[in-house]
């Protein structure tokens, strides 16, 4: 009942504000007329027919005072919440399918380029390394890669010969530096005493437990693997005749 009356009251006020006379409004809802009449009369009195305007000059002064205070406001430092929201917004922008693919491509290219750079730099630095050095493995891997990707037999043989020259040169440098290292090379057997062979100009000690494969004779080409001792003696571990 009250809700209904309040709705009728509001509709009646709207009609009153639209200029409909009170009696006409009451005639529409005669059952509520007695209760509505004093309320509508009060409502009629409440309308302000002549609202007082504020002089423009006064308003301008108040506006200037306000803006003077506004000008003194310090800049707002972003709060932790603001920063979190900013990160969230960026994350939202970056999680679209297109953005994810773009990011993956960028990361992959960056990783590949970085790896290539690292390999190139290390490869360059490894060029002068000797057996036993930290970078020597890279030097040998680079050579093996070169051989792997060389399909012409003549060019491959040429490369192998070059690399063998490097091995011989490395042994000479190691001997000069009196260093211990595992070495390998290919060379021709020049002389063969019982336990002392001269291969490609290097004196090689053949211990009893050395593995000799293919019954190599003087003049044969062999692959030698052994240990260079501090007394400048190369102790053979394996000697294999090259067919």
């Amino acid at each position: 009942m009250t809700d209904r009356f309040e709705s009728i009251l509001d509709e009646s006020i709207s009609a009153l504000q639209a200029g409909v006379p009170i009696e006409e409004i009451l005639a529409e809802v005669p059952e509520y007329a007695a209760e509505l009449r004093p309320l509508l009369f009060a409502a009629m009195l409440l309308a302000d027919p002549n609202p007082k305007l504020i002089p423009e000059e006064r308003k301008a002064v108040l506006h200037a005072e306000y803006m003077a205070q506004v000008a003194e406001l310090p800049p707002v430092a972003p709060t932790f919440g603001d920063k979190l929201q900013a990160v969230f917004r960026i994350a939202q922008r970056r999680t679209t399918r297109k953005a994810v693919v773009k990011d993956l491509v960028t990361v992959t290219i960056t990783v590949i380029l970085t790896l290539l750079m690292v390999i190139l730099v290390l490869g360059y630095m490894a060029q002068n390394s000797l057996p036993g050095d930290f970078l020597y493995g890279i030097k040998r891997s680079t050579e093996n890669t070169q051989l792997f990707f060389t399909f012409d037999d003549g060019r491959k043989a040429e490369l192998q010969a070059n690399f063998n020259q490097r091995r011989l040169s490395e042994i000479e440098q190691l001997l000069g530096q009196n260093r211990v290292a595992v070495v390998e090379f290919r060379g021709t057997i020049e002389t063969q005493a019982e336990q002392l062979w001269i291969i490609e100009g290097f004196t090689v000690l053949i211990p009893d437990d050395a593995v000799i494969e293919g019954s190599p004779q003087e003049g044969d080409t062999v692959d030698v693997m052994g240990i260079l001792r501090t007394n400048n003696v190369l102790v053979a571990d394996t000697i294999q005749r090259v067919k």
Partner: peptide, 10 residues
Amino acid sequence: QHRALASLAR
């Protein structure tokens, strides 16, 4: 609004 107008009407 109802209560306000009723108070005023009194």
